[in-house]
Design a protein around this nucleic acid. Structure first.
Lengths: 208, 208
DNA sequence: AGAAAAACTGGACAGTCGTCCAAAAAAAAA
DNA sequence: TTTTTTTTTGGACGACTGTCCAGTTTTTCT
């Protein structure tokens, strides 16, 4: 049984290295030889542990967001009542600084999923997990403030998700490369965004 | 002079064909041979009119959004006072249906711009044009409703832009492939998004 | 008409790609 | 130890890539 464990460990190692390589060069420009060289193994090894390039990349997609998503869920759910918005901002900020290239990869893979159907399903899994996180926050907010939505919950979740996601995407696109200023600006604007989304959107009794 | 005009015309034709090919296969999987075959010309012609693949792709980026952007600016600016939000939704809806693959390509190119610096500048040009459009709408809204922003204007523009952009991105990612239902849902949710952004965001005198 | 320039062709070129495999090396089992 | 089994290697294979060019055809000009 040690043999199987060892195989899985090596597989996990290769996935990790492939993720780093992919985050550095992007899907369009990465090759199996890059990954092999970066991992310090020969080319044939990759085909020994993964039947094809596509299988390796699928393994990357379904595993590389694990740590981040777990941290996100843990931090946000564990945050005190009115402060999970700030908690969310804090986690995002830290992660955007430390793992910027990983987040860039996330959008790269999402785009590729629009062309390669096999990627689409794996991406869908992660996105639905993020949707669930937002859903949980929404439910909690409604319970705490006894408010009701003016649109159906699915639309609200989809809206909040896309607003946050779009905001992160724009942040990554700005290669201002001034960490201090950009991050500060991100934190401020993000707080405002969350405030806007979760105050007017969830309880506004306005017309229309 | 006819010679130069003809050359430019053919160049434009090749760019158009390349755009279609790129929209179909995506940046990562398109080749010059694909483009040549689709255009009905030989491979050498591409190198005759464009020094390199990168130069051709740059020409694609800087030209393919032209028509859409002009239509957008025309429709939105020409819309009656309180209805430009609906006008925006209408244009986006129609374009999302007819030129879905072109919009998919737009996100593909934005992502590639994060890896290839040469693309970054061209993408930046288009994005700043879209920002200007939003800026114009914001200014108009402030004048009409005599409201003031609670955050600086740049942040507001960036926020609105990313919200819309993220929303479009999520729409493209949903390959529900049910045009009627998905589009209807998009139109409804988009209207709500615009309402939220432009009412609570621009004039709310709330604290914080 | 002939001469000069532009447009176009088909293929060669040097690489790189993903895939695959026979054989060597290492590890585990006997 | 010897015998299996697992792991690893280095390279070969054909297909594909962007680039480039010696000719050929077409157009334009004198």
């Amino acid at each position: 049984m040690t043999t199987q464990k060892k195989a899985e460990a090596k597989q996990a190692f290769l996935i990790e290295q492939a993720t780093a390589c992919l985050a550095e060069k992007g899907y369009a420009h990465v090759s199996l030889r890059d990954i092999a060289k970066e991992s310090g193994v020969s080319l044939g090894i990759l085909h020994y542990y993964f039947a094809s390039k596509e299988e390796l990349l699928l393994a990357v997609i379904s595993s590389y967001k694990g740590r981040f998503m777990e941290e996100l869920e843990r931090e946000v759910i564990a945050a005190p009542s009115g402060e999970w918005s700030a908690a969310l901002a804090r986690v995002l900020c830290r992660s955007l600084q430390e793992d910027r290239k990983l987040h860039r990869l996330w959008y790269d893979l999402q785009v590729q999923a629009m062309y390669v159907p096999a990627f689409g399903e794996q991406v869908k899994v992660i996105r639905s997990r993020l949707h669930q996180l937002i859903s949980r926050m929404l439910v909690r907010l409604q319970r705490e403030e006894q408010s009701s939505l003016t649109i159906d919950e699915d639309s609200a979740i989809s809206l909040i998700y896309s607003a946050i996601d779009g905001f992160l995407f724009q942040f990554l696109l700005d290669e201002s490369q001034k960490p201090e200023e950009a991050i500060a600006r991100f934190e401020q604007t993000f707080a405002y965004l969350m405030h806007t989304l979760f105050s007017s959107e969830s309880l506004s009794p306005k017309s229309r």
